[in-house]
Design a protein around this nucleic acid. Structure first.
Lengths: 104, 104
DNA sequence: GAATCGCATAAGTGTGTGCTTATGTGTTGT
DNA sequence: ACAACACATAAGCACACACTTATGCGATTC
């Protein structure tokens, strides 16, 4: 079940940080490591988990591997999250306020 | 960090099932167990995790404890998820299509 | 007030997870 | 061709996690 993979992937704070970094722009594995105090194998393993969950996708470029957020995974979360629309704060009535609320 | 508690709580499929059940209406712990093949202590422990994550809240009623989805936790997910708005599928442009897409 | 009920907590156990070190694989540069 | 590089994979280990059985605790029932 891919939904399970997604939530298990996001359950780790390091992986959420990686995902957040990729949300600001695509990067290769070394680029992701800078400023993160994480070993190369650990990063590789985390990226593997995120990739299998469909949250991230790769693109080989020579000896580099460029990673970016996979909108497919994001869409999957959106679908799951939509099931609980009934419990969204009442003031979230239209997209503008929804987005503003999500921003902060 | 409450965000970590939320994702760790949702990483377990049994807890997601419980959360989903509560989304259809508040219930006590015994009611949640029906049709789920889970021991009473296990259910109690899962509810404890969901409660600490802010996804669920309880309300004592005599010797029963009624559980319901906590909109606070749902709002928290909405805020996190909003950070990745840039990667939502392009066709999701307004609330109507967003909600329709989330529905299925 | 004693038994029962609904639920929580304690303690123990097997399994999963995230890290480490070591090594493999494919690519680039000289 | 050989070295250096970017990354993946393997194996081992410490710890977290979800379950079990046993017990505790407060509220109801008789």
């Amino acid at each position: 079940m891919i939904e399970n993979d997604i939530f298990k992937a996001l359950a780790d704070p390091t992986r959420r940080t990686i995902f957040e970094k990729l949300a600001t722009g695509s990067m290769n594995a070394s680029g992701l490591r800078t400023g993160m105090q994480i070993s190369q194998p650990a990063m590789s393993q985390h990226l593997s988990v995120l990739r299998n969950a469909g949250l991230v996708r790769e693109e080989r470029q020579g000896r580099f591997v460029n990673y970016e957020v996979d909108p497919e995974g994001v869409a999957h979360i959106a679908r799951w999250f939509g099931k609980y629309r009934a419990f969204w704060p009442a003031r979230i009535g239209d997209l503008k306020t929804l987005l503003k609320d999500m921003d902060q």
